[in-house]
């Protein structure tokens, strides 16, 4: 199972961040969420936490999204030493999306009223 992201449908409401933190911590804390939405002028970019990497990349890439340059670190799913997100704020333990348990039932998808997040196999 994978979560498909259609960033052009995302409105930036951050309800996915809310429900992810509720699911994993029983409180609303966006910094403990395994999904974060990056908000730009022309579009929003939901990014889902992938595996932790112990080392930073040694090349800083710039990627093009909708014709505009954006820092490659933003779209990278990895939790790494260079990033402030996808880490438990108090302990800095890396966070990773677990599809909300077994059987998988990702709450961010259920709460995405704009259909920017959908399940695909």
């Amino acid at each position: 199972m994978r979560i498909k992201i259609d960033h052009l449908k995302c409105t930036g409401c951050k309800l996915c961040e809310v429900v992810c933190s509720l699911q994993h911590t029983e409180a609303v804390n966006l910094w403990r969420s395994r999904i974060r939405v990056f908000i730009k002028e022309d579009y929003c970019l939901p990014v889902i936490a992938g595996p932790y990497t112990e080392a930073m990349c040694n090349s800083k890439d710039v990627v093009l999204v909708e014709g505009k340059e954006i820092d490659g670190c933003v779209v990278c799913r990895a939790s790494c030493p260079a990033k402030s997100i996808f880490k438990e704020p108090d302990t800095a333990i890396p966070l990773k999306c677990d599809f909300c348990g077994d059987p998988p039932d990702p709450q961010c998808v259920a709460w995405c009223d704009a259909d920017a997040l959908t399940i695909c196999d």
Binding site: T11, C13, K14, L15, V18, E41, A114
Partner: peptide, 13 residues
């Protein structure tokens, strides 16, 4: 229009 821009927590944007 460029895009729908939600306030925090609003599904209606």
């Amino acid at each position: 229009r460029v895009r729908d821009e939600a306030c925090f927590g609003c599904p209606f944007a």
